[in-house]
Design a protein around this nucleic acid. Structure first.
Lengths: 162, 162
DNA sequence: ACACAAAGTAAGCCTTGGCTAAGTTTAGAG
DNA sequence: CTCTAAACTTAGCCAAGGCTTACTTTGTGT
């Protein structure tokens, strides 16, 4: 807001950001980001597990490790956490399954991810960059923005689906 | 990646997301995100310090703590890190200054941040959401996407502002 | 001039999410 | 049936980024 049309404005280029936000608002912004960080990794794991179940029929720790690019030990530890959070069920040395909560989280993440990825591609971003950006961005996009992205794609004519 | 002629392909509806990416590519995506995470906080601090210097004339730990929404002790520890990274210079109990490298990083971050924020607003995202989303997204947007956002804004008529 | 509040620092604790190294279980080849 | 490789787990290490509590420094008000 406050887009003012004064004839001569100092640096003129970027009107909206040249003042610092009020302290509490600023702090809330960072707090929101910090909070997102805490759930990010969890969501990534759950989403990946869901994808593996869908596309491979099972989710094994070795696959997760390979796809996440981390050691099996790291995955093993993470699975324990996911278990405690009741997002997956697992028996030792067996592949995993998502709980109901896990399934819901996977679906939610998958959807956000897809919207962001498709949006970037609709915008004209190349495949590689779009994938990487989507992976990083998906946890930081509000529902409001997500909705706008969807509307944008509905309106957008092109982006040729290859 | 535009077209894949492998013999068996899942239903071609929304072609881009229904198959898992190759393992190495997938791993690289996550690695990129992990990497971004490591620098994110650093960039946020440096950007904020730059903003405080610009808008307040000085950057004191107490202000940083208030704006980041963390304790002074946390800021103090962080400043030590920034010092080690030669991004800021500081004398005990005095306010800080950015080194050349710090100044450059602040400018880069500020610019990314502004582009993302303005882009979101141009898309029609409300101010509060746009600020929060921009704060989270800025570290995960590739140069390619950033360029496209700029072009988009140059082409787009201003949406809901004023 | 000095006391005292505000600002800053230091020490020590916790949790996360990586890692390696070493041990256990599973499953498949011979 | 046995042996071995791959899959998995466990233990223990590390760094980062929070926190609190306790201390020091700075600078201001009377």
């Amino acid at each position: 807001m406050s887009h003012d049309h004064s004839p001569q404005r100092a640096p003129a280029k970027s009107a909206s950001v040249d003042a610092l936000p009020p302290v509490e608002q600023h702090a809330r912004q960072y707090a929101t980001v910090r909070q997102a960080h805490e759930t990010e990794l969890i969501e990534d794991y759950v989403e990946l597990i869901g994808d593996l179940l869908t596309h491979r029929g099972e989710a094994r720790a070795a696959d997760i490790a390979a796809r996440m690019g981390v050691s099996q030990a790291t995955v093993s530890k993470m699975i324990r956490r996911l278990n405690e959070l009741e997002l997956v069920t697992s028996r030792p040395y067996r592949s995993l399954f998502l709980t109901e909560a896990g399934t819901a989280m996977a679906a939610r993440s998958r959807k956000r991810h897809d919207i962001v990825l498709h949006f970037l591609r609709a915008l004209g971003v190349g495949d590689d960059a779009a994938r990487i950006d989507a992976e990083g961005m998906e946890h930081h996009v509000s529902d409001e923005t997500l909705g706008i992205m969807q509307r944008f794609m509905a309106a957008a004519p092109r982006q040729g689906s290859d």
